[in-house]
């Protein structure tokens, strides 16, 4: 469970010659009752791990698509506590690793100790906190380590080399390479330097490097996976579930598989 489960799943996937594909969905978008079925669908479609967003009233790192999904979830009265409970109840229904993506305040309101403990109980393997730079992370790293929950760090295009090195050395599970200077949401193209940046990050860490923010087409998936070990796809998956377009999700995931790469 936890950190080892992530490491193991990533290694198995890469050993097969596939790239890593981590879809993001907003917990409670469409109601908490659809969550388990969506997780199972993504697992069956071949996703490597799942990034599960926790709705927050003020998501400053997110663009319009995920903001709107968060508001829909909040409209359904979804809370971090409710999501944890649901994950615990449905733990036996999945084998795909679960990574929570949440801003700091819901964790803080939950209580850091209790959150870390309940994460382990609910089968949460990793955590992404977009408003927690390394300067503040000591507030919870002790509790996360104790409960074997991986803290996945984010690298940014604006980070200078010394920071990137520190972030790359600290990260657990994988290194999240943010590929745009901006918030989450579909992009049409990426800066020319993105490839170089991901390759540079590869040299700094033994963990896989995943590109995320703006990845929205099978071409993006193939292109960005070339440089590193895979991708995180957020807004596009959120849109697809909202529009009930599951075929597009399957196509995106297929683009990370070995045969599709040629």
């Amino acid at each position: 469970m936890g950190k080892e489960k992530l490491d193991q799943r990533f290694q198995e996937t890469l050993n097969k010659g596939d790239k890593l594909f981590v879809p993001y969905i907003m917990a409670g978008d469409g109601g908490l009752d659809v969550l388990n079925e969506r997780i199972q669908f993504l697992e069956a479609a071949g996703a490597t791990a799942l990034e599960l967003g926790i709705p927050f009233s003020d998501p400053v790192a997110d663009g319009p698509t995920i903001q709107a999904a968060g508001l829909r979830a909040l409209g359904e009265k979804v809370t971090l506590r409710g999501v944890m409970k649901k994950l615990e109840e449905t733990k036996a229904d999945r084998s795909i690793p679960i990574i929570l993506m949440t801003y700091m305040n819901p964790i803080f309101a939950y209580g850091i100790k209790a959150f870390a403990r309940d994460s382990a109980k609910a089968g949460v393997d990793g955590l992404i906190i977009p408003d927690l730079p390394m300067e503040e992370e000591s507030r919870l790293t002790g509790d996360l380590t104790q409960n074997n929950v991986a803290l996945i760090r984010l690298a940014a295009l604006t980070s200078p080399k010394e920071r990137l090195e520190k972030i790359a050395q600290k990260t657990e599970g994988f290194l999240y390479a943010v590929t745009v200077k901006g918030t989450t949401g579909a992009q049409t193209t990426f800066a020319e330097t993105v490839g170089e940046y991901i390759q540079e990050l590869k040299k700094m860490t033994d963990t896989p490097v995943l590109a995320g923010f703006g990845v929205s087409t099978p071409d993006h998936v193939r292109q960005l996976s070339e440089y590193g070990d895979g991708v995180v796809v957020g807004s596009q998956i959120v849109n697809c579930f909202h529009d009930n377009d599951r075929e597009t999700i399957q196509k995106l995931i297929q683009a990370s598989k070995k045969q599709a790469a040629h």
């Binding site: 940014a156 604006t158 943010v178």
Partner: peptide
Amino acid sequence: RFVPETLMP
């Protein structure tokens, strides 16, 4: 400083 890494620099 609770901000995205992009802003830290």
